[in-house]
Amino acid sequence: LVRYRTISKIPQITLNFVDLKGDPFLASPTSDREIIAPKIKERTHNVTEKVTQVLSLGADVLPEYKLQAPRIHRWTILHYSPFKAVWDWLILLLVIYTAVFTPYSAAFLLKETEEGPPATECGYACQPLAVVDLIVDIMFIVDILINFRTTYVNANEEVVSHPGRIAVHYFKGWFLIDMVAAIPFDLLIFGSGSEELIGLLKTARLLRLVRVARKLDRYSEYGAAVLFLLMCTFALIAHWLACIWYAIGNMEQPHMDSRIGWLHNLGDQIGKPYNSSGLGGPSIKDKYVTALYFTFSSLTSVGFGNVSPNTNSEKIFSICVMLIGSLMYASIFGNVSAIIQRLYSGTARYHTQMLRVREFIRFHQIPNPLRQRLEEYFQHAWSYTNGIDMNAVLKGFPECLQADICLHLNRSLLQHCKPFRGATKGCLRALAMKFKTTHAPPGDTLVHAGDLLTALYFISRGSIEILRGDVVVAILGKNDIFGEPLNLYARPGKSNGDVRALTYCDLHKIHR
């Protein structure tokens, strides 16, 4: 019993810090008490220290592992850092350059016999395009090294910054494609005289377009951006097909006994025919423009016929181009109408809503002055909100995010209106959640004399007048207030005048 009563005193000691020596009952000389009392004092002292730490809000209350900052290894790049964003855009520009100039170089340097010394005699450094290609190869190699040090988000939505895990993730992902696209074939085969082989191998750079397509997928929600990307894709495919079309004609031209190829026909049409040795002929500019003209006309199913396939190889390629053109029509131009419709969806919704308003007016036989006010209010409210119901949009977000959005939407009023000066951010967040926005066209009466005042109004834009009878008592403008002081009276009061809008007004109100 003594032991039980001794232990039962522990909660009292913990909360009230009572010393055991003052209790005459606990001072009985028993061996059990002498053993338990020192333990009680020690526990009391420890609990006292913990309570003191909690009340003082000291940093040592938290466990040590929670006080440590997340460790980022040296030379690790955050995937959302500004440097990584700028670097990704730079790589994107280099990939676009590669997609345009690599097929052009591979096709127009394929057994090209233009006048001038061969590239091997001039030297590697004197070729501007080769120098640019070398810079692109170096940048792609540097990009691989950067990807080995860039964080990523795993399946659990955690940012991984450990170098080993980053390397394994990159090896399992895009490393092989990036490595093949970054191989400097110019340096590996330079001086061997195989410019045709170098041009063909350099087309491996186009593998990076797969990554670019995935990154550009984030802009699919913007109709104008999608339309622009589709047109660029169409032009890029036409450019690639033009390079292939020229390569076919250029390879067949020296081996044909009869002059029936499209390059021969082009030379005869523009007065620059090929001679018996295969030299001469149109310039590279004429060849490229004509090839691009043929691919565009074939892809769009126009086909004027002034550039036509004559050999079997050219006919087979033309059939493939027609098939590609039909697929592009289905996948690209078939979506253009939907994209344009999405661009004008706001206008369509406006006309639909206006039609419903006019049908309501016609069905209920609203008189002319009231009908005009109804239409003007709808037009003004639509121009202010673009038909978007803010309350319906915010309803799907958590309250903390709703408060931040409301604070942002009402920031101008909260910053410049005098009653809100000096208020804490928590108070402003709470008030912003209570605001209701209303609009009024010129001549609209917001409050009639004798109406119950259940709200306090803040003028965000425009001006109003307060009338008693036919006498203008006051004219209020931006950041002015009218209405009933909230919670100042037990019952809502009545208006002693009319409140009429002089201009288009936007008002925020808080109800009782």
Rank of each mutant, 00 (worst) to 15 (best):
P442T: 03
L431D: 01
H79L: 01
Y293T: 01
A107D: 01
L93M: 10
Y97R: 01
L394K: 02
P184T: 01
L134D: 03
Q353W: 04
V142P: 02
T233R: 04
S412C: 07
P103Y: 01
F294W: 01
V336P: 03
I270N: 01
I361G: 03
R349K: 09
T98Q: 01
L94E: 14
M390V: 05
V212Y: 12
K215I: 01
L327S: 02
N386V: 05
R71V: 14
L92V: 05
R218V: 05
V86R: 01
F360A: 03
E121P: 14
Q127M: 12
R165G: 05
V210D: 05
K272V: 01
Y222P: 12
D286A: 01
V132Q: 01
L229K: 01
F304A: 05
I166G: 01
T290R: 01
R356I: 03
T120M: 11
L263T: 01
N386T: 05
T311M: 01
T290F: 01
Q402F: 01
L145W: 03
G223E: 14
K215P: 01
L327Y: 01
I340D: 01
E221S: 07
R208G: 04
D286M: 01
A213D: 04
R259T: 12
V210K: 13
I270Q: 03
Y288L: 01
T300C: 15
R165Y: 07
S276G: 06
M231C: 05
F304V: 04
R259V: 04
Q269N: 03
L374I: 07
T113N: 14
A155I: 14
I166L: 08
W75G: 07
R371K: 14
H448Q: 08
F333P: 05
W174S: 05
V302L: 01
F171D: 01
Q353E: 10
F378G: 04
A125E: 01
F140G: 01
V168I: 08
R429G: 03
R356H: 12
C122K: 01
E158L: 05
E114P: 15
G303W: 01
S298C: 15
R74I: 03
H364S: 03
K287G: 01
A338W: 09
C406M: 08
A247D: 01
W245T: 01
